[in-house]
Amino acid sequence: MMKRFAWTTAESPSAAASAASTICAEAMALTDGATDGAIVMAGGIDLLDLMKEGLLAPARLIGLRDIADFGAIDLERDGARLGAGITLAALAADARIRRRYPALAAAAAGAASPQIRNVATLGGNLLQRPRCWYFRSRHHRCLRRGGVHCFAHDGDNRYHAIFDNRRCAIVHPSTLATVLVALGADVQLTDAAGGSRRLPLEVFLTPPAGDLTRENILQPREILHAVHLPPISEGIRMAHSKRGEKDAFDWPLAEVAVVLDLEPGGRCRDAAVILGAAAPAPHRAVNAARQLVGAVIDEKRATAAAAAAIEDATPLADNGHKLPLFEALVRRTIMAAAQGRLEDSILR
């Protein structure tokens, strides 16, 4: 049962930011996650989960649902602006998003379950805490919760990171982040004075080196307000694939988003290959992209890129299977993008 808290609502982004005296990550690094501060809540799927597990106990929650246009989708001349409060279901169903950013709509449509997608928001999806089962256990106060030990390293790490896993081996839980980073999205953060800063999502999802207690740089008195998507030019191709042990309603073992910019003749001008469920943040497979840029993409090229994507991996005792899985999925997702398919749907 959750600890008691007070409930209020905010009607503007700045009011919400001004009330948000703390953030989830800050509170969860304290014993039992108990804070006398206030935390903002949109859909609340992750926050309530953490609170029910006894990992987070804020004195106050501030509901964001009343904020006007927090759940809006605006198509701009040079891209799109997605309110952070849009539900995954709305994102998946939006005809304009499906047309211009089909991989994003598909990723939203494939996340969690219909019931969760009807409540969970874009912002909540990006800000949700990791699913590491030690992090999520009140009986294991791990490094990420202010403890001194990573239980995953010598425990069961079958679902954990294969990159950047030396100190803490979480994987970033957001499926949308994988696609959004591949698309080169920005986030818009709004503060208590109503001021905004805009920065690349990839930068937002890079906490200061050495700070293991958070997965982003959101500050107290600040809210994640919107996500901005860049425009889609003629040659852009995108695909997103994921595989879990189950086909639906399961966390992925491996997830890949590929965005290609192809010249009319098919030569690849630019490429982003992002791996999800691979590292504490969406993992940019730089070497894989390098294999693609300047080339006409074919099976051989995709195979080389796939091999490059995992060459620097440092698997743990129980997650070596992620390497062949990612290798296959990277290759297939590149080919899917190059061939204009939305995802690798082989045996899914």
Binding site: R131, W133, Y134, S137, H139, H140, F151, D154, G155, D156, Y159, E245, K246, D247, A248, F249, D250, W251
Partner: peptide, 28 residues
């Protein structure tokens, strides 16, 4: 899909829920 997983160092079940303890659903 299914497997009860106990941490060998702490003795706790790490998937004591219906999320990481995986049951076949309609899609499977």
């Amino acid at each position: 899909f299914e497997e009860r997983l106990l941490d060998r160092h702490t003795g706790h079940m790490v998937n004591a829920n219906l999320e990481q303890y995986k049951l076949a659903g309609a899609c499977e």
